[in-house]
């Protein structure tokens, strides 16, 4: 059996190694599938559903679904875009995302996705939940107002940093990231140089003493939509 398989995304024939997820196979071929909980180098989580595509007629998470031979994937389709937008808007109203004073603004993946999809305002009513901030650690804090429960910090800390400092507690609307210690982050081994710190897509798990280091205009998503790097690589290689 050959270990390359052929499938299609938006009608374009694509070859990839067997066992690849739709998201990875697409990316290797210069097609960006929006994602939020997925982070290269750690195990996929499949929880945010921003990467939803239609695979053989069904909505599937591209970051966890392996490609099968002949699979027909729709990524750039109205129905798919509508689902993704709805998810992003829900994430905005579900937490307290005050971009105007967030240190992550301009480098935030949630915000960048909203920009990419041209969302001017969410259609859903804001919930304004009451959430805490764990500010007890000398170098690191978690602002739960901004946390989108992607588990990127949890997985990265465990799989890359080799620490057991973070985990989820509670369920449903009360679910949150918690430090694996009685009195919060300050009693854990988390360090500001941990890969977990770089893993948070939003301004939730953040270093102290940094603030607004990069001026407006020079931040990651100021001029180009998220995913442009992947799409550009494709254009460059077809030239």
């Amino acid at each position: 059996m050959s270990n390359t398989i052929t499938f299609s995304i938006d009608g374009k024939e694509i070859e990839c190694k067997a066992g690849r997820t739709i998201l990875d196979a697409a990316e290797e071929n210069g097609i960006y599938i929006p994602r939020l909980c997925h982070r290269k180098g750690v195990s996929p989580h499949g929880s945010c559903r921003v990467c939803t595509v239609i695979a053989n007629g069904k909505p599937m998470a591209a970051c966890t679904t392996p490609v099968t031979p002949g699979m027909v994937v729709e990524n750039d389709a109205e129905e798919v875009t509508a689902m993704r937008k709805a998810i992003i808007e829900m994430l905005f109203v579900e937490g307290n995302h005050f971009c105007m004073f967030c240190e992550k603004s301009g480098n935030c993946e949630l915000q960048a996705l909203a920009y990419r999809f041209g969302i001017a305002a969410p259609r859903y009513p804001y919930l304004f939940p009451h959430r805490e901030i764990d500010f007890g650690h000398p170098d690191v804090f978690i602002d739960h107002n901004r946390c989108i429960l992607c588990a990127r910090c949890i997985r990265t800390s465990r799989e890359i940093d080799g620490k057991e400092v973070l985990g989820f507690v509670e369920r449903g609307p009360r679910k949150k990231v918690a430090a694996n210690a009685e009195h919060g982050l300050r009693e854990t081994e988390i360090a500001v140089g941990d890969e977990a710190m770089a893993a948070c897509p939003v301004g939730a798990l953040m270093p102290k003493h940094v603030g607004y280091q990069v001026p407006i205009g020079k931040r990651e998503f100021d001029h180009e939509p998220i995913g442009s790097d992947i799409e550009k690589e494709a254009k460059a290689s077809t030239k």
Binding site: F92, N96, F98, M100, F101, A120, A121, P122, Y126, F128, P129, H130, R131, N145
Partner: peptide, 13 residues
């Protein structure tokens, strides 16, 4: 106007 903004910080209290 679009999100409540800074004044809406009181909404959690």
């Amino acid at each position: 106007a679009t999100q409540g903004g800074i004044p809406a910080m009181r909404n959690t209290v």
